[in-house]
């Protein structure tokens, strides 16, 4: 079985850099790259009755949009590089869900980009990179 590299991807430039970086390593090692996109979602947020009613419809739309405008173009762009690419689309807390994906995929490594928030902003709102450094179940590379 080949190694699997999970890349947290949100369409940003930083994420693209992380993906490129992971692809280079994967090409060298003959690994498979798994592009993972997480839609931020908390089961403990509060919704109005109308939002509850429309939730299933919205979820379908969100998944569809993420697949079409994010996952598919990212996959298409790297198709020619000779590295096998798979994709995962999930809902949840971003850092927790990436850890979960890494475990489920039996990943060897995890790659993410860094958005470069100010230290103050990250301290207040937390950052995905910061959380993953603490909690990632496999070696995690943060690409600046």
């Amino acid at each position: 079985m080949t190694d699997r590299f999970v890349v947290g991807f949100d369409g940003s430039e930083a994420a693209q850099r992380a993906l490129d970086f992971a692809l280079e390593r994967a090409a060298a090692q003959g690994a498979t790259v798994v592009i993972a996109h997480v839609l931020e979602w908390s089961p403990y947020s509060f919704l109005t009755p109308t939002e509850i009613e429309e939730r299933h419809k919205r979820r379908t739309e969100e998944l569809d949009r993420a697949e079409k405008s994010l996952i598919a173009p990212a996959k298409a762009a790297v198709e020619g590089r000779g590295v096998p690419v798979e994709t995962v689309l999930r809902y949840g807390h971003i850092a927790d869900t990436l850890c979960d994906v890494a475990k489920k995929q039996n990943a060897a490594q995890l790659f993410i980009g860094r958005n470069g928030h100010s230290p103050f902003g990250s301290r207040v709102f937390g950052s995905v990179a910061g959380s993953l450094v603490q909690t990632a179940p496999v070696p995690c590379t943060i690409v600046p």
Binding site: Y44, I52, H56, R59, R90
Partner: peptide
């Protein structure tokens, strides 16, 4: 995940 939870 992403559907309405029991909590919500």
């Amino acid at each position: 995940a992403g559907e309405v939870s029991h909590f919500q």
